[in-house]
């Protein structure tokens, strides 16, 4: 027993080292920096202060933070509502199953940046959609689509949908059809079967899908930057600006720490709740 544990750690050491150097150390650095002072030129003065957190919790930052949470929530729910029927459909068909799964995975082959540029081409004033609508005579002038909150939401839903579909597909595919037959046999209509049996039994996929959509959506800055212009920004943009433009690492670090805390707390509470209900 003792020996095999030692062996396991030896075998794991490369990944543990990687994890330590590239994840744990930076996170600890961020936490330390968030409590230090700025010398006014971007330098770090190692003196303890809570000033950064005071600013981070001011109404402007808080407002953007709450808006980001709201948008991420909206994106997650939309991805779930689109993704669930889609995943259900893929796992229930026999033909073209692999083709459809392939189509879900294809976007991963291209960088999100490039794919977001494609959305700019689609959405801009002289872009594909406006051009088409104009040519068909539906509109006189272009509709402003790019650089609106709507564009950000569309771009993010597009970007995160595969992350939602894949875990959902996995847990729907695993679901034993005899449970559905049993429900039907006991007098449950298809709708009742869905909500009483299918949803609770695929809850692991739903939870995973929601987490891996919500958490990165909360921190993303590339997509809102490109599709939202300078008006509609999310908390990720604020952090990026503090680090790269304002040279205020302390503020960026404290906002990051706050987000991490909120995300970890919500994950913890959610897992605790779903565990209590034994939804696996």
């Amino acid at each position: 027993m003792e020996r095999s544990t030692k062996k396991a750690y030896t075998l794991l050491s490369p990944s543990l080292l990687l994890f330590l150097v590239f994840l744990a150390v930076p996170v600890i650095m961020i936490i330390i920096i968030s409590f230090t002072k700025n010398d006014g030129y971007g330098g770090i003065i190692y003196e303890f202060t809570l000033q950064n957190y005071k600013i981070a919790l001011e109404s402007l930052y808080l407002k953007i933070f709450l808006r980001s949470v709201y948008w991420s929530f909206l994106i997650t729910v939309t991805c779930l509502l689109i993704g669930y029927p889609f995943a259900y459909f893929i796992s229930h068909i026999k033909k073209y199953k692999n083709l459809l799964l392939f189509l879900v995975i294809i976007p991963f082959w291209t960088n999100l940046l490039v794919r977001t540029y494609a959305w700019i081409i689609l959405l801009q004033n002289d872009g594909v959609i406006n051009g088409f609508l104009k040519a068909m005579g539906f509109i006189e002038g272009p509709i402003q689509m790019l650089y609106t909150p709507g564009a950000i939401l569309v771009g993010l839903i597009y970007g995160f949908l595969p992350f939602m579909v894949l875990p959902l597909y996995t847990s729907i595919e695993k679901l034993d059809r005899s449970y559905l037959e049993a429900a039907e046999d006991l007098g449950a209509s298809p709708i009742k079967t869905f909500f009483n049996v299918t949803v609770p039994l695929t809850m692991p996929g739903i939870i995973t899908g929601c987490f891996i959509t919500f958490i990165p959506a909360l921190g993303i800055f590339v997509v809102p930057d490109m599709l939202g212009g300078s008006k509609a920004i999310m908390i990720g943009n604020i952090i990026r600006d503090d680090f790269q433009i304002n040279m205020n690492w302390q503020l960026g670090a404290s906002v990051s720490v706050l987000i991490m805390t909120v995300v970890l707390a919500s994950v913890f509470i959610f897992l605790k709740l779903s565990n209590n209900k034994k939804a696996f």
Binding site: D176, S178, Y179, E181, A182, A183, E184, D185, L186, G187, A188, S189, V197, P200, L201, M203, K278, A279, F280
Partner: peptide, 17 residues
Amino acid sequence: YERDVNTVFQSYALFPH
């Protein structure tokens, strides 16, 4: 679900949740 019969399944198919 409209039929007045019930089934005992080979795998039991008891709802695990």
